[in-house]
Computed example of a mutant assay.
Amino acid sequence: MSSLPFSPTVPAGATVHCAQRARPAPRRLGLGALVAISWLAPALLVLIWELAARAGQVSPQVLPAPSKIANTAWDLIQQGRLISDLFTSLLRAATGFVIGGSIGFLLGTAVGFSRLAEALLDRSIQMVRAVPFLAVLPLVIVWFGVDEGGKIFLVSLGVMFPIYINTVLGIRQVDPKLLELGKVTGLNNRQLIRRIVLPGALPSILAGVRYALAVAWLALVVAETIATSSGIGFLAMDAREFLRTDVIVLTIMIYAAIGVLSDAVARLLERRLLAWHPNYAAGGRR
């Protein structure tokens, strides 16, 4: 009688468990790969646009080719116009952002902490927020004329509201249990605000900053339609008079590029200031 080879009995559950452990974990894409993928669609769109323009499918008067727009940008840089106008617009936007952001943060902090301040301020602020930029424009011209003050005022006005709303929302959404815990551990009101309330409200405040950056450029476009002799908006208005579609599209692309860069700066600020937060730390889900 031949002997059979020894075959130990293994429980079915253990076999499944071993197979699960042996299965390789799915590979996560690195940051560089994700960044490359995010630029894939815009690059493909520009390529299709260029090919369509070269094939004559798109009229140059309607939408010039990207190569034509790049040549126009280089010509304006050599003339010294583009850099000067870009710097002027950036200065206006930055000044208005600092002024409007500071006012929005202070008002939002007051309303977030005080129901009395909310009763005094919030309804008036919401009424002003509902007024479109174009409706305010004639009054701004009466107040400030065509000087820089009117343009900075419009940018500040647009920036103030997103930061105000998100500051109030962030303060009101702080977990009451954390406040109770802080009081139990002996923190006074100032320490509660500095260590618990403001850090807890920071994600919402920074979300308001990102939204305010986009609104700042929208307000600047409206502001630079006021009689002016410099800025990206003036460059577009001047090109409209001479039917320079390439310059108009160039200014639109500049606004888009600045918006992408400012949003990237805001994201970097989020990662630095919110490194303690699991959703913003390195490798955290966004």
Rank of each mutant, 00 (worst) to 15 (best):
V10T: 06
G13P: 00
G13M: 06
T15I: 09
V16N: 06
V16Y: 12
V16P: 03
V16A: 15
C18Y: 09
C18S: 13
Q20H: 11
A22Y: 03
A22K: 08
R23W: 15
R23I: 07
P24M: 04
P24R: 14
A25G: 10
P26I: 07
P26A: 13
P26D: 10
R27D: 06
R27Q: 10
L29C: 09
G30C: 12
G32T: 09
A33H: 03
A33C: 04
L34C: 07
L34M: 13
A36C: 15
I37R: 10
W39S: 00
A41H: 01
A43I: 11
A43F: 11
A43M: 13
V46C: 09
L47T: 12
I48K: 03
W49E: 07
W49A: 05
L51C: 09
A55V: 08
A55I: 05
A55P: 07
G56N: 06
G56P: 10
Q57D: 03
V58E: 00
V58C: 01
V58K: 00
S59D: 15
S59M: 03
S59A: 14
P60A: 09
P60V: 05
V62H: 02
V62C: 00
V62A: 12
P66S: 07
S67I: 04
K68D: 07
A70S: 06
A70I: 11
N71H: 11
N71L: 14
A73H: 13
W74S: 06
W74N: 05
D75M: 09
L76A: 13
I77N: 03
Q78M: 14
Q78H: 06
R81Y: 05
R81P: 00
R81E: 06
L82I: 08
I83M: 08
I83P: 01
S84E: 11
D85H: 13
L86H: 05
F87S: 12
L90T: 07
L90W: 04
L90F: 09
L90G: 11
L90N: 05
L91E: 10
R92H: 07
G96Y: 02
G96Q: 03
V98Y: 01
G100W: 03
G101N: 05
G101P: 12
S102A: 14
I103T: 08
I103M: 10
G104F: 02
F105L: 15
F105N: 00
G108T: 06
G108E: 04
T109L: 14
A110C: 15
A110W: 12
V111T: 11
V111K: 02
S114M: 04
R115M: 03
R115N: 12
R115C: 01
L116K: 05
L121G: 04
R123K: 12
S124L: 11
I125F: 12
I125D: 05
M127Q: 14
M127T: 15
M127A: 15
V128N: 03
V128H: 03
V128F: 15
A130W: 06
V131N: 03
F133I: 09
A135G: 08
A135N: 08
A135F: 09
V136D: 01
V136L: 15
V136K: 08
V136W: 08
P138H: 07
V140Q: 02
V140S: 02
I141K: 10
V142Y: 08
V142I: 15
W143N: 04
W143V: 12
F144C: 10
K151L: 03
F153C: 02
